[in-house]
Simulated assay, not measured.
Amino acid sequence: MPTPSSPDPAPEMEIVHLLRAVTVELGLHSARFANQNGMHPTDVRALIALMDARRAGEEMTAGRLGAVLGLNSAGTTALVDRLEQAGQVRRVRAERDRRRVVIEVEERAVELGQAFFGPLIERSVELLRAYDERQLAAIRGFLGGVREAAAEGRE
Rank of each mutant, 00 (worst) to 15 (best):
M1S: 10
S5K: 10
P9C: 04
L18Q: 12
V22Q: 06
T23G: 06
T23D: 08
V24G: 05
V24R: 07
E25P: 03
H29D: 01
H29F: 12
T42A: 11
V44N: 06
V44S: 08
L47S: 04
I48T: 07
I48F: 02
L50K: 00
A53H: 05
A53N: 05
R54N: 07
R54W: 06
R55L: 11
A62V: 14
G63S: 04
R64A: 07
L69P: 03
A74Q: 13
A78I: 14
D81A: 05
G87S: 10
Q88W: 15
R90C: 13
V92E: 15
A94P: 15
R96N: 12
R98H: 15
R100G: 10
V102P: 08
V105S: 03
E107M: 10
E107K: 06
R108N: 07
R108Y: 11
R108S: 08
A109F: 13
A109H: 01
G113M: 13
G113Y: 07
Q114D: 08
A115H: 12
A115P: 10
P119Q: 00
R123I: 09
V125M: 08
E126H: 14
L128R: 03
R129S: 07
Y131P: 02
Y131M: 12
Y131S: 11
Q135H: 06
L136G: 06
I139F: 04
I139T: 03
R140V: 01
F142V: 09
L143Q: 02
L143W: 00
L143E: 02
E148G: 01
A150M: 10
E152A: 07
